[in-house]
Simulated assay, not measured.
Amino acid sequence: MTQPAPLTPRSHQVRIWDLPTRLFHWLLACAIVALVITAKLGGNAMNWHLVLGQVVLALIIFRLLWGVVGGRWSRFAHFVHTPSALLRHLRGQGSVEEGAGHSPLGALSVFAMLLALVAQVATGLLSDDEIAFSGPLTRFASGDTVAAATNYHAHWGQYLIYALVGLHLLAILGYSLRRKGLARAMVTGDKQLPSPVPAARDTAATRALAAALAVLSSGIAWWVNSLGAGGGF
């Protein structure tokens, strides 16, 4: 188990990332790695690729919902920063609260990753390899749309995600070298901050709400996949 960083007289331990947000983060990371592996292996591994695509769709739906009703620092409203806040952050002059959750630059990377994943899943739903697999929404789209979606999903989309994941890992490394505790916070949920900020709600009630939203998200993902016989991502 990861041990919390020692507290100093001017250090405040604050719950920033609630458990549902942390579980989402690590499940998404594992799913993306598994999707890449199964896509490269091809053959029978594509059956798992299709299942994992459905998992990622459910995770994205959950995160969009949790971004509205989740813990304080997981809500989109609390990591949409102004251009002036971004400039302060780049100059190293940002406030503690502006960097407690997602920093202005980190928030941009989160939105970029979510948009890239939405595009990848959406094009997967519309993809057709003309051999064994077709997305469940292909029957609702024209041939040209399916061809464009397939090309994006198999090429540009995956390269964009590779680039964003690489930048994310570099950012984590940079924060770790500066002893910001970014990776530790996504495991324990807590950050050591120089001044107190409001903590995220992370109670039995909020976790029960998250579980209900996870079930709802899974149901929506299953329904989308059921729109096409033998469809996939």
Rank of each mutant, 00 (worst) to 15 (best):
T21V: 12
I16P: 06
S95I: 09
L115R: 07
R22C: 05
A122T: 14
G92D: 04
W26N: 07
I37Y: 08
S74A: 15
M46W: 04
T21W: 01
L52R: 09
R72F: 06
S103A: 10
I61S: 00
L57K: 03
Q13R: 15
T38P: 10
H102K: 12
V69M: 01
V33P: 07
L108R: 11
V33A: 14
C30L: 15
L108W: 04
L35F: 02
F111L: 15
W26V: 01
V121M: 11
H102G: 05
R91S: 11
I37Q: 09
Q120L: 11
L28C: 10
R72S: 06
W66Q: 04
H49S: 03
L90H: 08
A100R: 07
G101F: 02
I60E: 01
L64D: 02
N44G: 10
L7A: 13
G94D: 15
L57H: 03
S109W: 06
P20N: 05
R63C: 03
R22D: 06
T8G: 15
A100Y: 02
R72D: 05
L90P: 07
L90E: 10
G94I: 01
H25M: 03
A45E: 07
M113S: 00
A122M: 13
L114H: 07
A31F: 08
G92L: 09
T21R: 03
R22H: 07
W17K: 13
I16G: 05
Q13S: 15
E97I: 14
I37F: 07
H89S: 13
L50E: 11
K40D: 12
W17P: 09
V33I: 15
S95G: 11
I16R: 07
K40V: 00
H89C: 10
G94K: 02
G101Q: 08
H81C: 01
S84L: 09
A34L: 13
R63T: 02
F24T: 10
V56M: 04
V118P: 00
A34D: 00
V14P: 00
P20M: 02
R15Y: 00
F79W: 14
G71K: 12
A107W: 04
L114K: 08
D18V: 04
I37D: 06
V55E: 01
G92C: 05
S95E: 09
L108C: 14
A107I: 07
Q120A: 07
R75H: 07
L50A: 12
L105E: 13
L117F: 04
F24A: 13
G43N: 12
V14T: 14
C30R: 00
L52P: 08
R88S: 11
L90T: 12
L28D: 01
H89G: 04
T38H: 08
M46V: 08
L65R: 05
L19K: 09
V110G: 00
L41R: 12
V80K: 12
P6Y: 03
V68S: 00
L114Q: 05
H49G: 03
P104I: 12
L117V: 01
W73P: 13
H78Y: 11
G67F: 01
V80Y: 12
L27M: 14
C30D: 00
L86E: 10
A5T: 12
F79S: 09
E97Q: 14
